[in-house]
Design a protein around this nucleic acid. Structure first.
Lengths: 134, 134, 134, 134
DNA sequence: TTTT
DNA sequence: TTTT
């Protein structure tokens, strides 16, 4: 069956992007993204980071090279891809990365204000309350 | 068949959110989102807006009421829902809205800089170039 | 701000698709999708349907015209779009529909077997259990 | 910055799911998903597979154990997660997997018929045609 | 106007 | 009824 493969991430660059060019001249930018997650485990608030490599092609790659740097916030939309290779001693390896279809630049976070990601169901109301008519 | 219904939108509030409470006390926030789209039609660059109403429940609703205002940028993840009612003269009507499961707050865009959302394929390279190996 | 607008739906056609052609010859298929949702409201299991119109362009439109009929199950990926018009008596109206970027055909449901969509968090375990290490 | 991390995949199980239980009794299912992609590279049609491990918790995990088997088609919605460990000789390793928030079961594809996933823009019409008014 |  |  033909698949569907969509990833949407918001995070920060862990370093400046690298800009290179393919033999035929297509720009290629790559960087690693740190995607933070905060969750409650029983009483404690915990933080967790997921690092993932991002690859971007074409004119967007050049924009990334120009406007992004370590710490920049971005929204990345793309697809998961697996890269396979062999180590020098013949072991097979693979890693997952995201091939970006779009990269949206976020400004450095303004201070003050609150906000952040507000995920999942609120915890101050029983689930069925969500079905109430307004 | 049991369905699947997922919407992900990035856009800006067209007005301040309204915060109300259900009879049983669940907070409910609502606002309209403007989702912009830029596309090429032949030679011209065109812009198009899709306006859609968003409803949020629970603690997130209160956060929306607190931190969002007209113009704020957000990522909304939720499901499409249809609301049905009758007009005073007995006509049946319905509209679609999005019941948000999560609302992510985006900072105001920095000025200067470039970037912005860079959707789809770059226009300076033929599509197949994207498949080039690096 | 430039937006992001993604919709993924699974449902059934409420009628046979209509296939037409634009003046310039692009095929256009349209149909309505019924997306079912089952949820628990307190003790009761409830069912709810969201109906939404789908438009498809190009070769896919022809495939839809050929292979789909009332009741067919499909996965639709696309974007929300608003259509605006005026009624004969000059009232402004608009409706939301989905412009499909892809349509995946599902076979009629096999009998036996269980399954269906399994959404959200399980209800037999406290949320923090989800963070347990394996 | 607090992140956003959403993955939506459609693919097939490469093997039967494994069902285990955490010490505290939470069910945990795991399986690998094959997500196919077909693309045009110049003249040729190419196929590519991305394999990724999926983990599911709770009641859904039990449903997966009961109803899914090698080859089953599913829609997985979840988040990317990185697992870190050390090899016996002290090397640090990590891999990405997807923690599913929902798993939707797809029926086996009917034979005959046409269809399948029809991604992206049709190839029989110039892109701007898509913007034509109907 | 409605599908499984 | 509309936002950047």
């Amino acid at each position: 069956m033909n698949g569907f493969n969509k990833v949407i991430l918001i995070g920060n660059l862990t370093r400046n992007p690298e800009l290179r060019y393919t033999p035929s001249g297509t720009p290629v930018a790559s960087f690693a993204l740190a995607v933070n997650r905060r969750f409650r485990q029983g009483e404690e608030l915990k933080d967790e980071v997921c690092y993932i490599d991002i690859v971007v092609f074409g004119k967007q790659a050049e924009h990334c090279g120009q406007y992004l740097s370590k710490g920049s916030g971005v929204i990345v939309e793309g697809r998961l891809q697996q890269r396979r290779w062999e180590t020098e001693d013949g072991q097979k390896r693979s890693k997952h990365e995201v091939v970006a279809q779009s990269v949206t630049f976020l400004p450095k976070r303004q201070d003050g204000g609150g906000g952040g990601h507000e995920p999942g169901a609120p915890d101050d109301a029983p689930a069925y309350e969500y079905e109430e008519q307004l």
